[in-house]
């Protein structure tokens, strides 16, 4: 009887963990199931390399290069902002801050991470965008620049908290040795501590990248929605998640356009999956 209880409890935990795999496969299957049919209408190469996105035209154009470009440019902009800010905060908190400010700064950054993205979108749409027009006299306030700023700030806590974790695992003896050899605080940070934590820092950046490229509400509300290869920083773009979110609501289920949107989600998933595998690989190697 007792044995039966043991085994059944054990089986339940196995079953539960199998669910995580089932869910992941269900997600992958569902987007592939709905996305693959688009390649009856357009070849994969054309889908990826044509910049012309006119999904409801006769004949329709299903090229998502401009959407991919939009996603990567906005993400790049976000990383340019979030890497120095996030990494800077992490180094400051871990190496320079006194115990009290550490006690305050760490939770504050955690709180920053919990702000819902739609509120960032509201801020970008209703405050930042009109402000940009007033200050810089740019033709439109919904563009790569504004989306990058908002996304960048969203990613700061991710990079910061993960890098901080990595920095704090660097052994104290390493720092002490460096200081004892006559290096000052700054030299110790730059030459010893940061290099020692570089794989953790790198995976925090990859994670930030994954978060930024998959973020939907901010780019939907702030990026401007133009399906074009932009010629400047202040031009509107249509990143992949924005195209999916905006068009899925209005497309006819089962139409080529519908399948094309799932096709975009396959590309988006692949990009994030690769970034996840990279971090997996780094973490695994570090453990060894």
């Amino acid at each position: 009887m007792n044995k039966f209880k043991e085994t059944s409890f054990k089986s339940v935990t196995y079953l539960a963990s199998l669910f995580t795999i089932v869910f992941l496969f269900a997600i992958i299957l569902s987007i592939f199931y709905e996305g693959i049919p688009i390649f009856k209408h357009v070849s994969l190469i054309k889908f990826l390399t044509s910049p012309s996105w006119h999904p409801t035209h006769f004949p329709p154009d299903f090229g998502i290069l401009s959407l991919i470009a939009g996603s990567f440019l906005v993400t790049l902009g976000a990383l340019i902002i979030s890497i120095p800010l996030g990494l800077g905060s992490a180094i400051y908190i871990s190496e320079l801050a006194g115990p009290t400010s550490k006690e305050i700064l760490k939770p504050v950054i955690e709180l920053l991470a919990s702000i819902p993205s739609v509120v960032y979108g509201l801020f970008g749409m209703a405050f930042l965008s009109p402000l940009l027009i007033k200050i810089f006299h740019v033709p439109t306030g919904l563009n790569i620049f504004s989306a990058s700023i908002i996304l960048g700030i969203m990613v700061v806590p991710i990079i910061s908290s993960m890098s901080e974790d990595a920095l704090s695992t660097v052994p104290k003896s390493l720092r002490e040795a460096s200081l004892a050899l006559g290096a000052n605080k700054w030299e110790t940070i730059i030459r010893v501590v940061v290099p020692a934590a570089k794989s953790g820092i790198f995976s925090s950046i990859i994670l930030g990248f994954g978060r930024a490229i998959g973020e939907t509400m901010v780019v939907l509300m702030v990026a401007g929605g133009a399906a074009q290869i932009p010629k400047g920083l202040f031009q509107p773009v249509r990143p992949m998640p924005a195209a999916i979110a905006a068009e899925m609501g209005e497309t006819v289920i089962g139409s080529p356009h519908f399948h094309a949107l799932y096709g975009i989600s396959i590309i988006l998933f692949t990009v994030t999956f690769i970034s996840i595998l990279i971090t997996e690989f780094i973490v695994h190697r570090r453990k060894k």
């Binding site: 996105w53 006769f58 929605g225 399906a227 509107p236 609501g249």
Partner: peptide
């Protein structure tokens, strides 16, 4: 049925 210029903003 001409295409909208790709630079046009598209809002939801």
């Amino acid at each position: 049925s001409l295409s909208v210029a790709s630079g046009a903003m598209v809002l939801a």
